[in-house]
Amino acid sequence: MPSIKSTIGNFVHDVQDKLSSVLASAKTQIQNIVGTATSRLSNIWSGGFTGMSEQGMADLKAQLSSYCQDVQDLIDSFDQTGDITSALRGEVQTAAYDFIAAIKSLLQAYVSTMRQEIDEADEAYRNFASSDKSISQDVESSASDIRSNANNIRLD
């Protein structure tokens, strides 16, 4: 007959296994949510820069940096959420810690992507402006050809 100690030991082991499985499953689900959301972030400059001046671009970048800072402050504020989880123990506390870590990483990925877009904005703007310039030069040149042709027609 098994001893009380080993019976309780096996029982505790079973409970721990079930709880570990709940934690692991939730962690995977949360990681998938974070991964999917961050992999679908837009290229914010995909619409180009038509109508945007160089000075406007500098101001927009400052506004975007301010938005990023607001989200960064939010992430930093989660470090002060210890009081929320301090009443918890064991697996529920682990679950709460994992959750906070996951939402921090979600928001951090969001901010990092945006900061990268801000860093790449100048080059994207320059490329756009130069292709825009080249299009207007082409248009101007075509217009000049048309005018010249028109003059020729009149001369003929």
């Binding site: 400059w45 619409g47 180009g48 038509t50 109508g51 101001d59 927009l60």
Partner: peptide
């Protein structure tokens, strides 16, 4: 500060 299709697309993104 910005109007037009590019501005709209930026806001949508």
């Amino acid at each position: 500060a910005w109007v037009g299709a590019s501005a709209e697309q930026f806001k949508n993104n």
